[in-house]
Simulated assay, not measured.
Amino acid sequence: MKKRLTLAACLAVVLSAPVAFAQASTGASSSILDALLTPTSIGIVLGAVTGAIGLFAGGTWLTERRKRRIALGAYHAFHVVEDIAAEDPENTALNKAAKGLEVIDSWMKANGWRPLKPTEQALAKLQFSALHGEQKAEEKVQEQALSVALGAVAAKSAVEGAVPSMPRGQQ
């Protein structure tokens, strides 16, 4: 979207230049336009347009880097909040998402970044819920594996107890 807007602005400048030159050569306002359409002022305008295009085109790496920093902060904040919640299991009033956002904001400020905007906070909350879901799925898989293992041990002991074993060499 930014690139389309930038290209539209450049196209408008290119298409309006002949009209401006035509107006500069005729009419009473030609003295004002002649003063404005000097090579220096045209160079300044083209430099500003080029600079704006550079900001829009070159600014994408900042957003990707910031997204990675937010994801990293959300990962660490999630684990910090989980550790705090594990210290006091009776405290169910702890709002993990709010506490996690506070942790991310303090981490971002400590590392020279600005605090999170509301859209970035929503992204961090989504990351929290994804990490929570991943944690619960892993716990469920571990619980099922433990259940299968305990079932196998119980079955083996039941079979060993039910079938009398004879010592080797006696028949």
Rank of each mutant, 00 (worst) to 15 (best):
A8P: 01
A8E: 11
A8H: 06
A8W: 07
A9E: 09
A9I: 14
C10A: 11
C10K: 11
L11P: 05
L11Y: 06
A12D: 14
V13E: 05
V13C: 15
V14S: 11
L15G: 05
A17N: 12
A17V: 15
P18M: 12
V19Q: 06
V19N: 11
V19F: 01
A20L: 15
F21S: 03
F21H: 13
A22S: 04
A22L: 00
A22D: 14
Q23I: 09
Q23V: 04
Q23E: 13
A24V: 04
A24F: 01
A24S: 02
S25E: 06
T26D: 09
A28M: 08
S29I: 13
S29A: 15
S30C: 07
S31E: 14
S31M: 12
S31K: 14
S31T: 04
L33Q: 09
L37T: 00
L37V: 03
T38D: 08
P39M: 06
P39A: 05
T40Y: 13
T40L: 11
S41D: 08
S41T: 15
S41G: 04
S41K: 13
S41I: 10
S41R: 12
I42L: 10
I42Q: 06
G43E: 02
G43K: 01
G43P: 11
G43R: 13
G43D: 11
I44T: 03
V45C: 13
V45E: 08
V45R: 09
L46E: 12
L46P: 07
L46R: 08
G47F: 07
G47I: 01
A48P: 08
A48N: 10
A48L: 09
V49K: 09
T50W: 07
T50L: 12
G51M: 04
A52N: 00
A52S: 08
I53M: 04
I53H: 13
I53W: 08
G54D: 02
G54R: 00
G54W: 06
L55C: 07
L55H: 02
F56D: 09
A57V: 05
G59F: 05
G59T: 00
T60R: 02
T60Y: 09
T60E: 10
W61P: 01
W61N: 05
L62A: 15
L62P: 02
L62H: 02
T63I: 03
T63R: 01
T63L: 00
T63V: 03
T63F: 04
R65P: 03
R65M: 01
R66C: 00
K67I: 01
K67H: 06
A71Q: 03
